[in-house]
Design a protein around this nucleic acid. Structure first.
Lengths: 199, 199
DNA sequence: AGATAATAATGAACACCGTTCACGAAATAA
DNA sequence: TTATTTCGTGAACGGTGTTCATTATTATCT
């Protein structure tokens, strides 16, 4: 045998991530149980802890996949040959669409919490850049006066504002925006923000 | 003895809420354990379930208190004899301050989730009105064209946008706004929103 | 190829959690 | 006081994530 060792290890990891992803998509983060995942993946309970440090690290890898898909969706939504306001509006609507169509996996990105005092690894933190990557260019057109660092910070704020509206609409049981009004409200928010930012 | 029955019952409830509130403030929602709370409250483990349906309902009462304090803080922050933009700015900064000074209890308002399929009681849902109560008046000045219902909805959106920025800044381990920049970014967001909403 | 060493998978056991429930204590009613 | 209803008690239950001695598998060496 050649590198069977490594291959089997990677295969087990993949099966576990697949199973966890399916379980989260079906039943949410709270519905994810170590025994279910390992049963679905066709391995023993203890095998999970030979492949990953713990269940939280496995969830991290599921979130990693979701971020990649979300990043691709946002990237694909950027219209060509349009002004910054149109780009921002399109990005916001793409974000809404992704959250609606991948609700539980998207929610897992923001509701999952590591145990207190434990930080996510750098490679995973870096993956979150896709959330603001496409906002920076149109924002720079609206605010050419801002230096790169302030621009990056403002992009985070713009994302967080849109995200907040989507999050409260989809997960809160109070002050909730009805789903059918969500695209319209997000559009109004982005419109107001871009107009206010314009000059 | 007169109404000792009712009195003792209410006293037990209060002690449990006090203990849970202190535990959440000290260790967050995840650090809240039934055994700790009942030990702090000076009662047996099972007593919790004579006073409340379950641990989630106890948390609900803690959140109820937090909402009342937050509502009072927002109310007190409304400046008199100022324009709508100044009112919105003041409310946003008051929200930031409350979140910073009551971080874990504030976070519990939005991270606590009831079991799937179980809804919070109406009396508790109604308490969340304080989050948008003070936004409606200044917003109505900025947008006198909007009918009351749309105004209420837009107020939810404005709140959610500000809340999203604060939430990601304080709880996310990625795309995080540094805390010292949070007031400035929120101010910029509200400024942009109110300018964009103005006409 | 066969023997040996290193490694990984197994699943029963562990520690801890929220919740329940038979029992005894206490407060009300008779 | 006595009877009755109500409530607090804490051991026990079911379910959780995680560990660990044991077994099975793979790689290494002669």
């Amino acid at each position: 045998m050649r590198n069977n060792r490594e291959e089997q290890r990677e295969d087990l990891k993949k099966r576990l991530i697949d199973a966890a992803e399916a379980r989260i998509a079906a039943g949410g983060l709270n519905g994810l149980k170590a025994r279910d995942v390992t049963a679905d993946a066709g391995c023993a309970l203890g095998a999970l802890y030979t492949a990953f440090e713990d269940l939280d690290r496995l969830i991290l890898h599921v979130n990693s996949r979701t971020l990649a898909r979300l990043g691709a969706a946002l990237q694909a939504a950027v219209p060509v040959g349009q002004g910054p306001k149109e780009v921002m509006a399109a990005l916001a609507q793409a974000y809404v669409s992704f959250a609606l169509q991948n609700f539980r996996l998207w929610a897992a990105l923001f509701t999952h919490r590591l145990p207190e005092g434990i930080e996510a690894p750098d490679w995973h933190r870096a993956e979150h850049a896709v959330l603001i990557a496409n906002i920076i260019a149109p924002l720079a057109e609206l605010r050419p006066d801002l230096p790169p660092q302030a621009l990056q910070q403002r992009a985070r704020t713009v994302f967080a504002a849109v995200h907040g509206v989507v999050m409260l609409a989809l997960t809160a049981r109070f002050v909730a925006t009805p789903r059918d009004q969500l695209p319209g409200e997000v559009a109004a928010l982005v419109e107001a923000m871009t107009r206010g930012l314009a000059d």
